[in-house]
Amino acid sequence: MTRTFVCHAADVPANGMKQCETKGGLRLLVAHSGEQYYAYQAICPHQDVPLCEGLYDGSVLTCHQHLWQWDIKTGAALGLAEAPLEYFEVKLEDGAIYIVPPNALKMAELFAGINGQTLEGIIAIARREEYDEGTTLYRVGDPVEDLYVLESGRVNFVIGREDRTTPAGFMLRKGEVFGWAALLDNQPQRIAAATCLEKSSLLRVNGREVLKLLEADPASAFAVMRRLAALVTRYLAASGAK
């Protein structure tokens, strides 16, 4: 992976933060905490608010607009926040801060907290594919094989067949996982259709292969299954509401 220069470490205040822009025009929030530097998307994932205007106490970042909060060490959502921050791996060399974009699987909530080696195993079997706007990834009734992780773009879901369909939400953040029926034993067919609303880059991983890797690492498997159960419950709750 190519690294990109962001700023000099001396420009970031101790236990403070600073908004930076790379040569390519990518805007980032660089934060210092203890001995480490962290780099995140510069704009709040909720609304178009620069995070550098928020509050930062050296460990928790708060957007001052609607009080979404994140753990500065991981970018994980805290409190009211509904989404994590997109993070970039930081390399510090000779007082200069560089970033490397992380693999989308490392940002996937579903795989957060699993053993690093197991995650590398999943990354190794993932295939990156690009799809044009309007591409149908799968239809209702298609056989379930892969689960998908969004790298960039936007994917729309529709439940139902022919003209009796209902929009069922969309994915737009890097690291969002869909098609997770591939991790369920008794779910041989897709229950929704997924279509790219814009040109999208996705990682595809075979569900059976993921389960095999997880079987060898029960602690990680338990973590993934807990998160999967939470995910399924969220969908049930959403479709049960008015």
Partner: peptide, 23 residues
């Protein structure tokens, strides 16, 4: 409001679900 939010989060360490206001 901004001054109060800053004070409550940074100094008082109040959790955000206990700070209510309409912008």
């Amino acid at each position: 409001v901004d001054g109060a939010i800053r004070m409550l989060i940074v100094e008082a360490k109040l959790t955000t679900d206990n700070i209510k206001y309409d912008k």
